[in-house]
Design a protein around this nucleic acid. Structure first.
Lengths: 258, 258
DNA sequence: CTCAATTTGTTCGTATGTATG
DNA sequence: ACATACATACGAACAAATTGA
């Protein structure tokens, strides 16, 4: 019985997958440039401290993804970057956010009326009696990139059932002049995909997601919009110029060129 | 030959780990409350579409972490929340960021002078000829929570070798009155841990991290500070009130109370 | 107290995946 | 490519503890 490497001990995820993840990132970040010959199996073996076959398994994964091209007797070459669809979906100020959301195409996958709000943090105002739960998926190029789980107060939802059912809720609420939004708390964390989210985003159970919680509180201190948004990790990037307070570079929304 | 579940096909990470991740998140988010009896093995079996033994393996993981307590004949109960060390380390404006960084305790683990800058995005200004590379680890309560990989122009570094070697670079640069910072581009993404980062953060290879890239550009258009910061995913949370533009709730830095 | 239903715990057999040398 | 050891996952059956009728 051989003991496994200490790195493996730490995560229990198959070693060759761990190794492949690292190699993939090296290609993505340009640490290994396209066309380059990467280290030999022996060097990689030494660097990662794993068996030769394990390195080969990792390389095989990357080859299936079209990232590398191994040639017997010559070496292994980087043949392409992973396609990354990174948008900026999060804004740093409320107005930008609303204007971004307005253009979103979304698919409602679930609506449930008269439910109670699962939980509210101390700083997030007080809950209304009843909420409507809406779940939708947002696509780009036919690929799902985010799942929105939204709770709206039942009476607010009832006020414009038609529009809420078919479009983004945020602009609708902003349009209601009798509603005064005094806080828009946004919390960004890293989470993992539950079965529904995994299914909708077409990723594996437990894979990491960028989780954004957005809670709007009105002038009565009531949480009138409670959203938990799960972004596909590869479709997520938040850019900002800290000195100018506007989204940095390029268009505020749209495909990356890089 | 049995074909594995489609969820498993998607990520190739051991199923019981995937299942455990989801359960752990349910406890953390309060979807399963402390003291509650969670669904029976049979229900979980059905929900996740996996074998009974696989569910048990997942529960065993959580039990080792002290999150659940299974009792024969009765059921499985939530016995505690995962301890979460979430800070807010990212700021939404430059001044706050500088003041936060000032208090950071960091451990320099590597310094290398006269290197070239690996890569610069189009919007991030132009590179100087030579840089100094500094790597440091930041701790809290003895636990590492972030790794900073920083490139400083060689001449800038040489100007105050002493301080740059031992303390946070950002406040030093801000103090230099001959340096005019005109842009502070911050990009936040989700990445995976490479071997060095995994080692320093004490996490598994390929585990997700919150990656923050911060590039300062001076009035000559030169990138005078290029940092790639990897945060432990559990130590990372970015909170902001989009309407007030100040960090939301509580102290801007410090342990969460929630 | 006994019985039955419920629920977790254990074991076997089989097949495939992972990792080493 | 092969031999070996161990891990992962399934399905099924059975054992043991708890609860309430």
């Amino acid at each position: 019985m051989k003991k496994l490497s200490s790195l493996y001990d730490r995560s229990r995820i198959p070693l060759y997958i761990q190794v492949a993840s690292v190699m993939r990132q090296r290609i993505e970040t340009g640490h290994w440039l396209e066309g380059d010959k990467i280290s030999t199996l022996e060097e990689l073996e030494a660097e990662f401290g794993v068996a030769r076959v394990t390195i080969r398994q990792a390389i095989e994964l990357l080859r299936d993804e079209g990232l590398v091209n191994a040639q017997q007797g010559r070496g292994t070459f980087v043949s392409g970057k992973p396609k990354h669809n990174r948008w900026l979906n999060l804004a740093n100020d409320f107005e930008t956010m609303v204007s971004l959301v307005k253009d979103n195409v979304l698919e409602r996958v679930h609506i449930e009326e008269n439910v109670v709000l699962p939980e509210l943090d101390e700083n997030e105002g007080t809950a209304a009696a009843e909420y409507t739960f809406l779940r939708s998926v947002q696509h780009n190029d036919g690929e799902p990139f985010s799942v929105v789980n939204l709770h709206l107060p039942q009476d607010l939802f009832a006020r414009d059932r038609q529009r809420f059912t078919h479009g983004a809720a945020l602009p609708i609420i902003v349009d209601m002049k009798e509603v005064k939004i005094v806080h828009a708390y946004q919390t960004l964390t890293i989470g993992v995909a539950d079965p529904e989210t995994a299914e909708l985003l077409k990723i594996g159970l437990g894979e990491p997601t960028a989780d954004c919680r957005l809670v709007l509180v009105d002038d009565r201190g009531i949480a009138i919009y409670v959203a938990n948004i799960h972004y596909h990790k590869d479709c997520f990037a938040l850019r900002v110029d800290l000195l100018n307070q506007k989204p940095a570079g390029k268009a505020a929304r749209g495909l990356e060129t890089a």
